[in-house]
Design a protein around this nucleic acid. Structure first.
Lengths: 352, 352
DNA sequence: TCGCACTGCTAATACGATTTAGCAAACAAA
DNA sequence: TTTGTTTGCTAAATCGTATTAGCAGTGCGA
């Protein structure tokens, strides 16, 4: 079944040189160490013919660096969000010839500790600690055993770790501008949070920041928010209920839903009342859930850049690893990744 | 930042014994090798106090087994399906104290080769080769370097690898029975494939098998399929179009949609024609996409057991690794994982 | 002829564990 | 006293690579 792997010693013997020489040639230090052209060619030929590949475990033991990083998240399965984030991380890792360990903690601190230890036991070069929904987390002290970054999360206590986050405030501004630019000034309702700055569900930072951006832009434009409805869990059912409540007390001209699932529920409520999107009511939302392009009409939404978040996290992690090797301390910088708007069919100018 | 790891040698010195003794005690072979109670206690105490953890890289080099497996899939991001499969694999791995490398090939054979090599370079104990949509795949020869299993995929050429697949034929039977048990015998239309056995989109095995199960059960009950519509890609838009076509030529009493996205489109088409689900038309589907429980009315669907598939794959992989260690050859067994029906609101008896 | 620098390569060690083979002491049997 | 057995531990080799230190040979100037 598995033909034993070829070792460096075997390559050396085939080329008629010492393992030292073979190692030097194959690690590109041949020139530097004055290995002759001829010997160099012999070694390369032998390696090629024997299909030599260095044993990464051995290299890891010898050099202390394994070209491996860990990706630890609270949950990996819920929604495809996680998938895209992992995909971004994966590709950034691949670009560097690095492999990814993954693990999930399910929010259990003990599992998290065990996982981090298991990764450090395997000598990972660094760790991405990710949250699936943007929030503040308690940074486990085990993380300090290697360079690390926080993805989609902010440290509860001050910490030296850099964070990578979507730029939610700007996303809020974007959503508001989409409506303003379409000509909306009246009857703008919020579904999920607001209208006051303090009307946010507990825990998540997304709600707070999106709301801040929305309020800022509408405020500056002299537009007052017609109403808002705080939802705890941002599921379709709540969007349905909230929108029904709004409809019971008047006719909205535009809705800013705090995510696409809420918008999905909102569509249903509007349908019940015979209101058409976007002719009667414009809808703009956040996340760019796959759902958003299936809804009818398709939903204009400010996208969570999961893929880019994942990539960025690995990029930052590698500069962190670089600092670490150079003996420098890490910086607790916060990196914000832009959230692009996906313009679709759900926004139109208000009817006169 | 990172306090250097404690080594076995340091534990041994602290306990005043040789590294050999320390190793023996810590690997539980103390009794067997006649280490005295007293020395054993000293070693354990030292290890505890120094917080000793074995360096997995070193152990990997020495023993050749890394307690690490690889999970290679064509795509990890599309849909949450992947997530659940990985989650299942992850938990099964965790139960065994094993870590998971992940990688994705994007269907590129060269990437796949590189990935498998990179994993073997790191001495993984085994590999799960997964497809996100059930299909037949070309098994790369690099896979033979370690034990392996196929997840959600069948080998194109005969192979020694075991496969783990959802039981799609039985799922087809289940869907058909759901309608029969509700009392449906007439006006049953298929959306996505059928009505003839050969009306399936190319590539996927799910369509063929689901259709076979449906035809078997309906046939045995003496029920004829009223019609069917082959769709290539199983997206909402196609479900919409297909259902419109069906409605143009008559009134269906029940739809079997080949997946939930098609059903989503079908709902829209039915809505356009003023037909209510399930009063006028019953709908049953496959996959149990998250969408299914958001639709209104909620959708009765036969679930893809992604989580269980992932778990099962790792379970089978480990028996495979066991065989391998015992020197036995692998068996190309096909394991079928049941697909449970999620009964919701979209099926009702036909109106008289 | 001697010393010196340079060229081109290798011996030996280290990384951190596991495992084989074996040693010294104590004791028992002959 | 010798021989053999058991007990309780350790020395040394090993896994596959990277790296430091150094060795033999050559050419050159003095």
């Amino acid at each position: 079944m598995s033909p034993r792997r070829v070792t460096l010693a075997e390559v050396a013997k085939a080329a008629g040189v010492s393992p030292t020489t073979a190692s030097l040639v194959l690690s590109g230090r041949g020139r530097e160490m004055r290995i002759s052209q001829e010997v160099e060619q012999r070694v390369l030929k032998a390696a090629e013919e024997l299909q030599y590949r260095p044993n990464a475990v051995s290299v890891g033991l010898r050099t202390g660096t394994t070209r491996t990083i860990g990706f630890v998240s609270d949950t990996v399965a819920t929604s495809r969000l996680a998938g895209d984030m992992i995909k971004g991380a994966l590709e950034a890792a691949r670009d560097r010839g690095v492999m990814l360990f993954i693990g999930e903690t399910e929010g259990d601190p003990e599992l998290e500790r065990n996982l981090l230890q298991a990764m450090h036991d395997r000598q990972v070069d660094g760790i991405v600690l990710a949250a699936m929904y943007t929030r503040t987390i308690k940074v486990p002290k085990e993380i300090t055993a290697s360079p690390a970054v926080l993805l989609n999360a902010l440290p509860k206590q001050p910490s030296v770790l850099p964070s990578i986050l979507p730029d939610e405030v700007e996303a809020g501004r974007t959503a508001a501008r989409v409506l303003l630019e379409a000509g909306h000034r009246d009857g703008i309702h919020l579904v999920g949070a607001g209208p006051r700055a303090r009307d946010v569900p507990p825990g998540g930072v997304a709600a707070m920041e999106r709301l801040a951006g929305i309020r800022e832009v509408l405020g500056e434009a002299g537009v007052t928010i017609a109403g808002g409805c705080l939802c705890a869990d941002w599921q379709p059912q709540e969007g349905l209920d909230a929108t029904r409540a709004i409809l019971a007390s008047g006719r909205p001209r535009a809705l800013i839903c705090f995510n696409d699932r809420l918008a999905f529920g909102a569509y249903q409520a509007l349908g019940e009342h015979g209101l058409r999107v976007p002719v009667d009511v414009s809808v703009v939302s956040f996340d760019d859930h796959p759902l958003a392009s299936w809804m009818s009409p398709t939903l204009t939404t400010v996208a969570l850049p999961h893929y880019e978040l994942g990539r960025k996290a690995v990029d930052v992690l590698f500069t962190e690893i670089g600092h670490h090797r150079a003996g420098a301390a890490g910086e607790a910088e916060v990196h914000r990744v832009p959230m692009p708007v996906r313009t679709r069919e759900s926004v139109a100018p208000p009817r006169p």
